[in-house]
Design a binder for these strands. Sequence first.
DNA 1: GCCACTTGGTTTATATTATAAACTACTTTA
DNA 2: TAAAGTAGTTTATAATATAAACCAAGTGGC
Lengths: 94, 94
Amino acid sequence: MFDELDPLLHQQLRLAVMSLLISVQEAEFTFLREKTGATAGNLSVQITKLKDAGYIEVTKGYKDNFPQTVCKITSLGLTAFENYVNALEKYIKK
Amino acid sequence: MFDELDPLLHQQLRLAVMSLLISVQEAEFTFLREKTGATAGNLSVQITKLKDAGYIEVTKGYKDNFPQTVCKITSLGLTAFENYVNALEKYIKK
DNA sequence: GCCACTTGGTTTATATTATAAACTACTTTA
DNA sequence: TAAAGTAGTTTATAATATAAACCAAGTGGC
């Protein structure tokens, strides 16, 4: 009846990050922080979790001499997101 | 951009309970336990939280000599659920 | 009537999670 | 070269979820 909701995605900030990465393909840490309004610390932790799960790919480089972290969704992440949305819809459809 | 997701509703079991209560109007504890597959302990805790928030109304009585807990959604709960769904949709719409 | 078992829960102890505060490392500006 | 800013990470604490343990009453066998 009620499928499990992927606990990794069923969390506001991580879900917002995934949502953004789906629409923009690739995003910098600072972009994600601005769009989500999260603190850098919290965002850092949640990005690490998504990366550890293989849902996103994280590339660390430099831009204008400053460290730059770029995130990109993986196909595993995309599938997980789709599954999550499908499961969720059973909870919220009228 | 990303609205807050009511933390009371953004939890699997409580969301499932609310979802059920919307479709059936009124439900017994045992019915909710069966439909959600939750343990009685967990369900009891989550029902209490929903009640404390005023999202549901809980009536304790007896049926066939056994205690019977009946849950019913309140108008506050219905509104909260609708708001939650609206907020959530911004996260998951393609 | 007594004992084991079942129903319908509640309480509480533990594990997990989320979050902000504190910190690191480096850069720019004055 | 000192202060302030950028871009994060680490970690300590608070909040949360969950199952295990418990409780109260009913049922059935003998």
